[in-house]
Design a protein around this nucleic acid. Structure first.
Lengths: 111, 111
DNA sequence: AACAACTAGTTTGCGCTGCAAACCAGCTTT
DNA sequence: AAAGCTGGTTTGCAGCGCAAACTAGTTGTT
């Protein structure tokens, strides 16, 4: 029961599909640049930009802007906090599902 | 890459934490009543009511109202469509994660 | 040199949605 | 008979995600 209640406390910041994809991707590489994430997720530049801004504000990602030759480049990586957060998030999702699977297939009432 | 794009096509109706919890719960029992779902999820009656209304509108759950003695009782179960939808949703989440895990831990660029 | 088109993003505006709070109807206890 | 349960529904608004518009600089093209 209690494991289920946790799902309603899931961090919306991480659970939003676009950001879940971004964070999951970042958790499996050292870093990625803006354009890579854009083609990975299929998001528009605008959406990606604002999602990244939110993740940065929350302290979950580091965003480093530089120039590669003459061309601006935005490199994104997880902070330690971000790494922990996305790991924890997937753990909660797993727990919810496996917890439900332990049920007997009966009719559930409140009493 | 393509598996990742799917995440941005995740059904928002199902992905919302409260509804994900409701649907996952229902997928592991024959049916459940309103009060059971409320204590399971910790949602207020108001929220639960409107979430269920949306799921019903979408044809994902059946809602049967009756009286148990003198007390009204609302019983909720998945439709076949609902059963398929939640199963498919979890499958997509799994695919995203496992796909990311296959990556080499390098720096990802667009080129 | 001037102009169009492209790269790499950011900002803005609005429609939708989830949530809390208010409300409703009937039952029950005092 | 009134206060307080149970079992919900409706309402209002704040916040969010998205598309479109915009910014800033680079690379052809003529």
């Amino acid at each position: 029961m209690s494991l289920f209640r946790e799902i309603t406390e899931l961090d919306k910041l991480l659970h939003e599909p676009a950001r879940l994809a971004i964070m999951t991707a970042l958790s499996n590489c050292e870093s990625a640049d803006f354009t890579f994430l854009q083609s990975l997720t299929g998001l528009s530049k605008g959406n990606l930009s604002s999602h990244l801004a939110k993740l940065e504000e929350a302290g979950l990602v580091n965003i480093i802007k530089s120039f590669v030759g003459k061309i601006p480049n935005t490199n994104i990586s997880l902070t330690e906090e971000g790494t922990n957060a996305i790991e924890e998030h997937w753990k909660r999702l797993d727990e919810m599902r496996t917890n439900a699977r332990l049920w007997k297939p009966e009719i559930k009432t409140a009493t």
